[in-house]
Nucleic acid binder design. Structure first.
Lengths: 250, 250
DNA sequence: CGAGACGTTGAAGGTCTTCAAAAGCGGTGG
DNA sequence: CCACCGCTTTTGAAGACCTTCAACGTCTCG
């Protein structure tokens, strides 16, 4: 690995593993130096709340490690998770800092963040960064709409399978940095049944029952308490009734 | 009303009723002149298909009149409408011209459009326009996520009421140009029961039954075949179990 | 070990869907 | 003008699926 620090001025961002995929992907060195200035690395423990609905998110940035959920909650306690942020994903809403969501760290999370205002100033100055952000937000929009189909029209079984497909593609993207485009052999589930239920618009018992049923059918193979193997990915895709778009969006 | 055409050079866009709310809102005169050049007004009859999934949308622009739906369809015919575009809304996805949606005109529609490529070039040149677009797309994202809660967690009754609230706010925004901020007295439903069902993730019969039930309860008052009055808007809000955000997003 | 959180499983119940039929509305043509 | 046809909408009855309620099992950690 090349020693990039010899120049003495290259910001640590240049070494970031999300340098090529994250929001900073297209930023030039000038922008990187700017970003570097206000950078703050935040840590959240598993299960901790990052923000409540109505809170002002003073920072925006990239999830480095862990898993963050965005949820909408109703008075009576029903909740619907509307977004999952994996490493490399952008957290925050430019232009409106008050969040309508309950933002939670589902696992030990590291968040590389910048001051909200500083970031927006930079945005106005750096068209490349702005374009990149727009792209990322549009992908989120596509993902949200894709998930709407799952919530509105799929059976519990299909929902679960869609979830596995989503995870497989998503975890794959993370590890794709390396070389192989193959899907991960074992999926490590950091989410509890309840968190999965909230994401899929189901009750916890239904999720549990579908897990059992799918395992019995051999579509999934439990590995320990939180591991999962998909012996026949095609079969899962089929059971999810997904048009295979190669995970492009979701 | 001032006669704006005296200057002889002012583009028709300057007179557009969506000049202040649409995508062109913040564009300066220079951008307007640019936009004006490639402008094409398209018409679609009620029920016509604008694009099939996988099609390339060569144009982007603003819906002027009518109602456009974006839907995801499954092999077996199930469909989920993931977005409704009312007058003033932006149709198209910058950066990716292939649409994953079935795009349909639910009623007689006029679409003020620009060439896809030309628009993107203009975007790169006009930071104000770009910002405006980002804003609009982020609003769409918020709306999609809001709808996820409705699809995943609400009962049929709540879904219908949420739909009425959505419509009331949405139609209000259109007529708000004038003066009064009050909600519209009569909602004109251009959508069939089937289209409503596809939007709410329900079957047509369920929608019909809920209509009957809500009418019987006095929450809604049918006016003719496609008209609707909400005698007590607060009650509908309550039945929708919506936190009243003043229709900010949805 | 015991407490508490998480997960599984069973039985009963409710909500939405499915299947089926009839009614309402709108247009066409005799 | 009215009979007729097609389409949308409504309504009913039966059934499927998911939820609810409840109990038990399992894992983790002090």
């Amino acid at each position: 690995m090349r020693n990039l620090s010899v120049a003495g001025v290259l910001p640590a961002c240049a070494l970031c593993q999300f340098r090529s995929t994250g929001i900073c992907a297209l930023s030039g060195e000038r922008e990187l130096v700017q970003l570097e200035k206000g950078k703050i690395l935040k840590r959240y423990s598993a299960g901790s709340t990052i923000a409540y609905p109505g809170d002002t998110l003073k920072h925006v940035g990239t999830v480095m490690v862990g898993l963050v959920s965005l949820s909408r909650v109703m008075q009576d306690g029903r909740r619907q998770t509307v977004g999952l942020l994996h490493p490399g994903d952008f957290l925050g809403r430019p232009g409106r800092s008050v969040t309508p969501f309950l933002v939670e760290a589902l696992s030990e999370t590291e968040f590389c963040s910048f001051d909200h205002k500083a970031f927006e100033h930079l945005l106005a100055d750096a068209p490349e960064l702005h374009s990149r952000l727009t792209d990322v937000m549009l992908d989120e929009l596509d993902a949200a709409r894709k998930w709407m189909k799952i919530l509105g029209r799929k059976s519990a079984r299909e929902k679960l399978c869609s979830f596995f497909v989503y995870l497989a593609y998503r975890l794959n993207r993370q590890s794709m940095r390396a070389s192989d485009r193959s899907l991960p052999d074992i999926i490590h589930l950091t989410m509890t049944r309840e968190q999965i239920a909230d994401f899929l618009g189901l009750r916890i018992e239904t999720v549990s029952r579908q897990f059992s049923r799918l395992a019995q059918e051999g579509l999934i193979e439990p590995v320990g308490r939180h591991g999962l193997r998909l012996p026949d990915f095609r079969a899962v895709l089929e059971a999810a009734d997904e048009d295979d778009d190669g995970g492009m969006i979701c």
